[in-house]
């Protein structure tokens, strides 16, 4: 058992051990959450300033061969299945570019024959002029494929382990390629070797015990930071609807991770409600999505397909930007440049 005094003494240290981090997840730390938040804010402002980076997802396809029990794209769930053509995806992208987004995240289910490497390359070639930064959150790929995508102009990789606990992982991923725990776990590693500038990891809040999952996540992030020292590592907090993880626990998790890993990016999506997101702005979050739609075609088409999850924060980009300004922060649209990457010539 960690006492409040022990937590307080940890808050005085600059470089924390993993054991110190574990103490920040304790119940005693929960009781002095305000002190954690104060330190998290100071550390975040030192490294990231008073800024918030925006991004938006584009869902390319909700077809999927997996059966993740928590997901709207589960192949056993009925619903309208759609995969966008390159032209349709570009139409989506144009809507987002028009809104003001300069960083985007391409998302899809696991359907390799539809959302193929070739398809992604052709799409990225067309998106390169519209966006400063393009990341992917699709199915795990080989290092070779990642290198191809990097050369095409993809600079970031997002992949969540979903749950670090192996037993639970097997239970919630009963079939499909995703049932291979190790292949998924090694995905950020393959991305790092391929040379992605940004690697974003996370777990789904609500599948396992939040404290042990957060500890595993922190270890994973620290390992990646050391091994791929040229990549910016960031962490997301996708919380399942009706999750057992409370707002207080989510807040504690964000603050503790910030204190343990002061330079890691922390990302919060529109899964969370507007009020909570606004309150978390000054506590350590560095990137936010806004105005998101989680079904393919939803930005540019009228008939909605099946969503991956229901979003909570329905505000427009302008409204979220205004909320950020109100908190005394500067919304940042562009903080990356295509020019960093020596992109391959357009051959299509």
């Amino acid at each position: 058992m960690t006492s409040q005094e022990e937590v307080r003494s940890i808050l005085q240290i600059e470089r924390l051990s993993l054991a110190d981090f574990e103490s920040l997840l304790s119940d005693s730390a929960t009781e002095i959450i305000e002190e954690l938040a104060q330190k998290a804010q100071r550390l975040t402002q030192k490294h990231f300033g008073k800024t918030m980076q925006f991004y938006a997802p584009i869902y390319l396809s909700n077809e999927c061969n997996n059966q993740c029990v928590y997901c709207g794209f589960n192949s056993k769930v009925s619903g309208q299945r759609v995969s966008l053509s390159v032209e349709q995806a570009v139409a989506e992208a144009k809507v987002l570019a028009q809104m003001g987004f300069r960083h985007i995240l391409l998302v899809s289910g696991e359907k390799k024959d539809v959302v193929s490497v070739d398809y992604l390359k052709r799409l990225v070639f067309q998106l390169r002029d519209l966006f400063a930064s393009i990341s992917i959150e699709i199915y795990p790929m080989s290092e070779y494929d990642y290198k191809e995508l990097l050369a095409a102009g993809v600079d970031g990789l997002t992949v969540y382990q979903e749950v670090y606990d192996r037993e639970i992982y097997e239970k919630v991923h009963p079939a499909g390629p995703k049932s291979d725990y190790n292949f998924r776990f090694e995905t950020p590693e393959r991305g790092g070797r391929a040379g992605f500038y940004k690697i974003n990891i996370g777990y789904l809040l609500g599948l396992g015990d939040w404290q042990s999952e957060t500890l595993a996540l922190a270890k994973h992030a620290q390992y990646l930071q050391k091994k791929f020292w040229q990549s910016q590592i960031s962490i997301s907090f996708p919380r399942l609807k009706g999750s057992r993880v409370s707002d207080l626990q989510l807040t504690q998790m964000i603050c503790a991770l910030r204190i343990f890993l002061p330079k890691v990016g922390l990302v919060l999506s529109t899964r969370e409600p507007a009020e909570l997101r606004d309150n978390l702005i000054p506590l350590g979050i560095t990137q936010m999505s806004a105005a998101s739609r989680t079904s393919p075609g939803a930005y540019s088409q009228d008939e909605p397909a099946t969503e991956q999850f229901a979003i909570s924060d329905q505000r427009s980009l302008t409204e979220v930007a205004a909320a950020i300004v109100k908190k005394g922060y500067e919304p940042v649209y562009k903080d990356w440049d295509r020019v960093y990457i020596e992109t391959a010539a357009i051959d299509s």
């Binding site: 003001g100 300069r102 400063a132 940042v332 649209y333 562009k334 903080d335 990356w336 440049d337």
Partner: peptide, 13 residues
Amino acid sequence: VALRRVDLNSPQE
């Protein structure tokens, strides 16, 4: 000024 922050496409922002 960091060039990565410069956006010639939307000068007003």
